[in-house]
């Protein structure tokens, strides 16, 4: 790395001459600002593994989208069972006050880069239960959401379109992993 100044802070003085140190975040910063990021994004967009996490009617379409008739493997989109192996979380239903802490925990277990798809109206706005005493609306203020897919439930094709929009968003570097919302506290 020719721009040896990367990430060199106070420890520089203690090092012998001709040795430069760097840190992971500095490398990340460097890649982000270079054309390399385009290659990284290309890789990311073609391996959007999602977590099977059915929470309601949309969960059924989420199951259907992974198998023969829609076959998301064509886009490198593969269902995974564990949050630790997944890149995309789909909030596919009403989130109740009881479930919100668990959902947050699942989200925290996912490794970056990670994205959220809001699938269906229940996730977007509370849906038919928007007035209910038990549901949490305004999930977009709690989670950094990238794509909204209206529909009740959205057809599997609409879900696929959501994924394609997410791919576009990643290529355009407009996704919330790149540009975190200040309100999220840098999630």
């Amino acid at each position: 790395m020719e721009e040896g100044g990367l990430g060199m802070g106070e420890i520089e003085a203690e090092l012998p001459p001709n040795v430069t140190v760097t840190s992971a975040s500095a490398i990340q910063e460097f890649i982000k600002n270079s054309p390399l990021q385009k290659i990284v994004n290309w890789g990311r967009k073609n391996s959007l593994w999602f977590m099977t996490h059915p929470m309601g009617c949309c969960g059924i379409e989420q199951i259907c989208v992974g198998v023969a008739h829609y076959d998301t493997d064509r886009f490198g989109i593969i269902p995974r069972c564990s949050p630790r192996q997944a890149d995309v979380m789909m909030i596919s239903g009403y989130v109740s006050k009881k479930y919100l802490p668990a959902l947050k925990r699942v989200w925290d277990q996912m490794l970056e880069p990670r994205w959220i798809l809001m699938m269906g109206e229940c996730a977007i706005s509370g849906g038919p239960w928007w007035e209910s005493y038990s549901t949490v609306t305004h999930l977009d203020e709690i989670f950094p959401v990238d794509i909204y897919i209206p529909g009740c439930p959205p057809r599997p094709e609409a879900l696929l379109q959501g994924f394609i929009e997410l791919q576009k968003k990643i290529v355009a570097e407009q996704d919330r992993t790149v540009i975190p919302n200040p309100a999220d506290g840098g999630v």
Partner: peptide
């Protein structure tokens, strides 16, 4: 028409 996915909540 069912292709309604969008990037922001305002677009819904």
């Amino acid at each position: 028409h069912f292709e309604l996915a969008c990037w922001t909540k305002e677009e819904t």
